[in-house]
């Protein structure tokens, strides 16, 4: 019933071969440029480059693409409309703002679509010395999310068996939802406690320096990927300056 929500291993796509750390670093590079300017050309170039990576992340079918990006499209669109109506940025300025939002968020979409959470945790702990407590703990917690979705439905039905139902009253609905959420939270905390016990029993966080069975290696292609992001950023700024639209946010003074 929740098969579509099951958080199994992520399918292998070409972008999966780029180390998650390299992907994050590249995202930081383009984000810096996006945050530094208010024009429309810079984000347009960056977004164009990011769109080129969609097929590599396996996001070609319009349906999957829309499913993954709709919140970001809605957010960008709303910002653009608000700025157009209330702001003094004009049509191009509003478009630039929307493109900035899309450009900032797309690397995240690409990372999630192409990266197995386990590989991400491996990369973060191996290369950037993330505490295993955080990285591995998050992995364990992530496994529990689909269970929560199934339980939500059960708990909702269980309330009806006790005579508790909201009907059409929106206030009662909100209260009922709050009650269900609380029951779920209590259940989740208890399960998390049991999971922590089980992890302790297998020596997690026992003061011994943890090794990584899968490892995480940075290859030439990872360096090239980051270099590529620097090139994209440079091209975006150059294009913007040449077009005469470059409008840095912070002018040194």
């Amino acid at each position: 019933m929740t098969a579509s929500l099951a958080l199994g291993p992520t399918p292998d796509v070409p972008l999966s071969r780029i180390n998650p750390c390299a992907q994050i670093l590249a995202a930081v590079v383009v984000s810096v440029v996006l945050l530094a300017t208010l024009d429309v050309v810079t984000p347009a170039v960056v977004v164009a480059a990011e769109l080129c990576l969609l097929p590599a992340a396996g996001l070609t079918a319009p349906r999957t693409l829309l499913l993954r990006t709709w919140p970001l499209l809605v957010g960008g669109g709303t910002l653009a409309v608000v700025n157009l109506v209330l702001g003094d940025a004009g049509a191009l300025g509003a478009l630039g703002i929307a493109l900035r939002v899309v450009g900032l968020a797309l690397p995240g979409v690409l990372l999630v679509a192409s990266t197995d959470p386990v590989r991400l945790a491996d990369a973060l702990t191996v290369h950037w010395r993330f505490p295993p407590r955080v990285a591995v703990g998050s992995l364990a917690a992530l496994r529990l999310v689909p269970l929560l979705v199934t339980e939500f439905e059960t708990v909702r039905l269980a309330r009806r068996t006790r005579g508790v139902e909201a009907g059409r009253n929106p206030v009662a609905r909100a209260r009922l939802l709050g009650g269900v959420a609380f029951t779920l939270l209590v259940g989740a905390v208890r399960r998390a406690g049991r999971l922590a016990t089980a992890m302790d029993a297998r020596g997690f966080d026992s003061g011994v320096r943890r090794t990584n069975a899968r490892g995480s290696v940075l290859r030439r292609r990872d360096h090239l990927f980051v270099a590529g992001s620097v090139v994209v950023a440079a091209v975006a700024v150059t294009a913007s300056v040449l077009a005469g639209t470059w409008a840095p946010l912070f002018v040194g003074g």
Binding site: D116, V118, A140, A198
Partner: peptide
């Protein structure tokens, strides 16, 4: 222990 879902960590 009892609950299989509270003992597995990885995918």
């Amino acid at each position: 222990m009892q609950d299989p879902d509270a003992q597995l960590v990885m995918t």
